[in-house]
Design a protein around this nucleic acid. Structure first.
Ligand SMILES: [Zn+2]
Ligand SMILES: [Zn+2]
Ligand SMILES: [Zn+2]
Ligand SMILES: [Zn+2]
Lengths: 189, 189
DNA sequence: GTCCGGCCTGTTACAGTGTAACGCTCGGCG
DNA sequence: CGCCGAGCGTTACACTGTAACAGGCCGGAC
């Protein structure tokens, strides 16, 4: 189709429809506020997704890519309905249910993460190998989410689980509090 | 108040009705399946709540108590609407919004916990002191939730948080997988 | 070529989760 | 007595998530 016209250099990735072909690159300067490291890495994530799809024979479709781009460009966790809205253009609405399906794909392959305590989604900030799980630091004040990992935490958890005779399949670790930047701001008040 | 008398072994506690007064007794064998340690501890939790309310000058009202009892008697995590339904009787419906308020109170004071990945609530299985946070082991097959703590995990987390300059306020650790009992069942298949 | 089956997406409809706002009642207090 | 705050009932609404069905596009079988 033809809905579009706003890409400039970049191709912020709309243009859905060439169905299954994906061109890469593109950076897209959107001016989202408070975007700490969003857009800079968005291209990287898309590139990673393309490599991954290639390697595993997956279909990294236009909708999935656009969804990934939207999530990656925003610095904060986004709800599925927010994503749907950002993906929609006057003539062409994207239904939330489609976004959910795209998000299912993306989370399944480790490209985005779901923040259970917020019902929202964030881009994966660093491809973790295998079962290496993430720790999310969610700031109460600015809403930013930082993703990190810790082999030490992983080990402690494994020990506790083994002791309980529990076989883990997925792990959720979400810490809510104040990020470093906001602690500074708090003092200034 | 006069509502009490239901500890001991018995007291499965259902039959809530009479508005604010609740007489106990009733044991009501409901046969909730797979109720591992639910009803046995329900009385303990209520007792703890009463001590806590006494100590802090809080109002442990009938609705809050009945809500706590319902959560404690069920072995599995319950949704707010499920709780509302269990609290309702033909003549008198309890709205979910009231349950949410009661749950706010109960979670605030550490009597129940919210399982973020399930949008459900479980009784606290052991009064943790101060900032000691819990680890929830959620079984995929039977749905049971086990609560445990680990000073080791706590320390690892603290180290990671300090390193990131993040000031934690609340922690969520939820592991989904297979509990010991269900692993046995799985082999039997 | 045509047909078929899978995968993805659009669309509708609905279930489940959570909160805002308003008004009432009750108990304590001046 | 009236005032006030906390708890609760009620309504209405927003947000989150899924089921079910239909259409399009592909690749492989015939
Ligand atoms: Zn990640
Ligand atoms: Zn912050
Ligand atoms: Zn607990
Ligand atoms: Zn189990």
């Amino acid at each position: 189709m033809d809905e579009q016209g706003m890409d400039e250099h970049g191709t912020c990735g709309h243009h859905a429809h060439e169905d299954r072909t994906q061109n890469a690159g593109t950076h897209g300067a959107h001016d989202h506020g408070a975007c700490a490291h969003g857009p800079a890495r968005a291209g990287d994530l898309v590139a990673r997704a393309e490599r991954l799809a290639q390697a595993r024979g997956l279909q990294f479709t236009a909708l999935r890519r656009r969804t990934l781009e939207v999530v990656a460009e925003e610095g904060r966790p986004l709800g599925a309905y927010d994503i749907a809205e950002r993906l929609s253009v006057p003539g062409k609405r994207v239904a939330a249910v489609s976004v959910y399906r795209a998000l299912d794909f993306l989370t399944e392959h480790g490209l985005v993460h779901r923040i259970a305590s917020r019902n929202a989604f964030v881009p994966c900030e660093h491809g973790h190998g295998a079962g290496e799980s993430a720790v999310f630091l969610i700031c109460r004040r600015c809403g930013n989410v930082d993703e990190t990992t810790s082999a030490e935490i992983e080990r402690s958890l494994d020990r506790t689980l083994a002791q309980a005779g529990f076989k883990p399949a997925s792990r959720i670790v979400e810490i809510e509090g104040e990020c470093g930047a906001c602690q500074g701001k708090a003092e200034a008040e």
